[in-house]
């Protein structure tokens, strides 16, 4: 069984958990993900590996409460167990050889961007981190990012923390001030990644994005996670989740991500009602 060793709320809707999974911790690399099920009838959901500790044998996951499954997950306590936890899935990020990188994280995507920034820092690269949140209450991992970045830009949509504006505004400023990046790595909402790619394409800077489409098995068996990349169909769970952002068809990916929105909304409400009943 996969025990929750630590649970820590990072902000009102984002939680960090450390899971006891020694075999996975031994192999995990930045950019890879796990799939979990909370209970016996649960759905399989993919979450990117936010950190790992090979010695302690733990995997850290960070998730935003967006639907029924993440709601249930968030109701588990330290000491509880997850029903299923499988990984490490997907192809690790290619970080070797990069000298100077801008890491762009948006919202809970920062949880995925952080291990990338950390690994780059360990590899001796110059790291400029640009992180953006809707408002001050939603900020996560600030000190962690600071510790591994040579330069750090904090952005918020409403100006309640850091600088007011979007991550693309900050990235644009840096590029225009003459910063030369080998690569930009952007991880966050699809719309954010789309606009980062539009900007870097203008400046001809290679950009890697991390895609997180709907998945079931995570092993290449269902094709539900498929995307169009450079005109070809790719399975995000095995060919990715990292892709060349200038080749990804973001509009299609955004449409596909909305496939089950009504169902998810209904299930989430049902789950919330259930917990409300139980809490009384």
């Amino acid at each position: 069984m996969f025990q929750i060793l630590k649970k820590q709320p990072l902000n009102p809707t984002v939680t960090l958990m450390e899971i006891d999974a020694p075999l996975i911790a031994k192999k995990a690399e930045p950019g890879q993900f796990i799939i979990l099920r909370v209970n016996e009838n649960g759905e399989r959901i993919p979450l990117t590996i936010a950190d790992y500790d090979r010695e302690k044998g733990t995997i850290t996951i960070i998730f935003q409460i967006v639907g029924a499954t993440t709601e249930e997950l968030n109701h588990l306590k330290e000491g509880d167990c997850l029903h299923d936890f499988v990984g490490p899935l997907g192809t690790p990020s290619h970080l070797e050889g990069l000298k100077k990188v801008a890491v762009v994280g948006g919202g809970v995507g920062c949880a995925i961007a952080y291990p990338v920034a950390k690994k780059l820092h360990e590899l001796g690269a110059t790291v400029h981190s640009i992180v953006g949140f809707r408002n001050k209450d939603l900020v996560i991992l600030e000190s962690q990012f600071k510790a591994v970045s040579d330069k750090m830009c904090m952005m918020s949509d409403d100006g309640s923390y850091g600088e007011k504006g979007l991550v693309t505004d900050a990235l644009k400023k840096l590029i225009e001030s003459g910063e030369q990046y080998d690569e930009v790595i952007a991880i966050g909402p699809l719309i954010m990644m789309k606009f980062v790619c539009a900007l870097t394409k203008e400046h001809n800077i290679k950009t890697v994005v991390s895609m997180n489409p709907i998945m079931i098995d995570g092993t290449g068996m269902c094709g539900g996670c498929r995307l169009t990349v450079g005109g070809k169909t790719k399975f995000a769970c095995v060919d990715g989740p990292d892709f060349d952002g200038h080749l990804v068809d973001f509009d299609e990916a955004m449409e596909r991500a909305s496939m089950y929105k009504p169902f998810e909304r209904k299930k989430h409400e049902d789950t919330c009602n259930l917990f409300r009943g139980a809490d009384r």
Partner: peptide, 9 residues
């Protein structure tokens, strides 16, 4: 179960 050979081992 949950053991993808080629990944975890």
């Amino acid at each position: 179960t949950n053991m993808v050979i080629g990944k975890v081992l």
